[in-house]
């Protein structure tokens, strides 16, 4: 079991780390789109696609980058009690409460897949003049949510290991 968990954690953390390292440069993608938007607006005709494209980039950025942000420990917690607990106690509590987190992510993913199927079935397009098809961004969102769940499970395994006094 420990062997499996170790392997899982190493693989998932590794994959999410690399994806996150790529996604973090997404800030320049957003910046580039918005700068092009201001340039084209000032000197030529305003572009149809910039605002929406920037929104897609933002969504990809935070959803696909989400697992790496968990690894970085940037998702704040209210530490009124948590801050005072021992590492062991935290691992115990976390290993239960992370199930709630996984549940939330699962419901998000369920809705995402439902919405993605709809988008593919009806070839859904954004109701804008640019009219981009929506399945690509919805696929990215679903993939990101799936990776988030994998990462949350990895956190659970790490907590279980902590309780057993091991380190994965």
């Amino acid at each position: 079991m420990t062997g499996f968990m170790r392997g899982y954690v190493r693989t998932v953390d590794g994959v999410n780390y690399h994806i996150g390292r790529v996604m973090m440069y997404g800030i320049f993608v957003m910046m580039g789109i918005l700068l092009w938007s201001s340039i084209s607006k000032t000197f030529f005709l305003p572009s149809l696609w910039t605002l929406e494209m920037a929104q897609f980039a933002m969504v990809a950025y935070y959803i696909m980058g989400g697992p790496y942000s968990i690894q970085l420990g940037s998702n704040v917690r209210m530490d009124l009690f948590y801050g005072r607990w021992s590492v062991q106690t935290r691992a115990w509590v976390d290993s239960f409460t992370v199930l709630f987190l996984i549940f939330f992510l699962g419901v998000l993913l369920y809705g995402g897949i439902d919405s993605l199927i709809y988008a593919i079935q009806y070839n859904e397009r954004s109701p804008t003049a640019w009219r981009p098809v929506l399945w690509p961004i919805k696929s990215v969102m679903c993939l990101g949510l799936f990776l988030m769940i994998l990462q949350a499970v990895s956190e659970l395994f790490k907590d279980i290991a902590h309780i057993r006094g091991e380190e994965l």
Binding site: I70, R77, M78, L80, F81, Y82, V93, T97, F100, L101
Partner: peptide, 19 residues
């Protein structure tokens, strides 16, 4: 209550919403 457990804030709020 969920926030007090020290779970990540988004997880705590989101879980209540989902349930």
């Amino acid at each position: 209550l969920m926030l007090m457990t020290g779970q990540r804030v988004f997880g705590a709020i989101g879980a209540v919403a989902a349930v």
